[in-house]
């Protein structure tokens, strides 16, 4: 196995730490709607940023660390299943549909849709019913809006910051 350069490792750790903090702050917000699962998903900015500045494996690492630590620190088994399934699907889709940096927000929207679809599937499995899929249109709207928001945030950060943090 190739050793990770300390510079990259530090950046990954930093991004994972920021993602965990953002995730925790967001979990303190009151729910936006009566439909469960509607949230901005701001922590995904950090996964996106890692994907575009560091690479695929590094983004997967940042996401895994964030989801696991979030489960240990705050969530129970139930919320871990939701965030793990959503996060994993989101990551897989973003890895497959990695568009140029100018279209980072599109990648983010696809990821958000996959995230919500994953969570809805977990809900259907846990509740043992397909009735939960009545939330699909609500969650698609939320995914498009939230994905655009987090995607543009990551995109702006990428173009402003990345120039200065290229590995020296």
């Amino acid at each position: 196995m190739k050793r990770i350069h300390p510079n990259r490792l530090t950046q990954m750790a930093l991004l994972a730490a920021i993602a965990l903090g953002v995730w925790y702050l967001e979990s303190l917000l009151p729910p936006f709607t009566a439909v469960p699962g509607v949230k901005p998903g701001l922590a995904n900015c950090l996964t996106l940023y890692a994907l575009y500045t560091l690479g695929r494996k590094e983004a997967a690492g940042v996401l895994t660390v964030r989801v696991l630590l979030a489960a240990v620190l705050a969530g129970g088994m139930g919320s871990f299943l939701y965030s793990a399934a959503g996060g994993l699907l989101c990551l897989l889709v973003m890895l497959c549909v990695k568009l140029p940096p100018q279209q980072m927000w599109v990648t983010s929207v696809f990821g958000a849709i996959a995230h919500n679809a994953g969570q809805l599937t977990v809900a259907a499995l846990l509740m043992r019913t397909a009735v939960v899929f009545v939330y699909l249109p609500h969650l698609l709207i939320a995914a498009i809006l939230a994905g655009t928001l987090t995607g543009l945030t990551a995109q702006f950060a990428y173009f402003r910051l990345h120039k200065h943090t290229k590995e020296g």
Binding site: P36, A123, L126, M127, T129, V131, V132, V134, Y135
Partner: peptide, 13 residues
Amino acid sequence: AGKPVICLPNRVM
């Protein structure tokens, strides 16, 4: 009819 009430944490519907 088009809007069931679902409680995910307690799995009540």
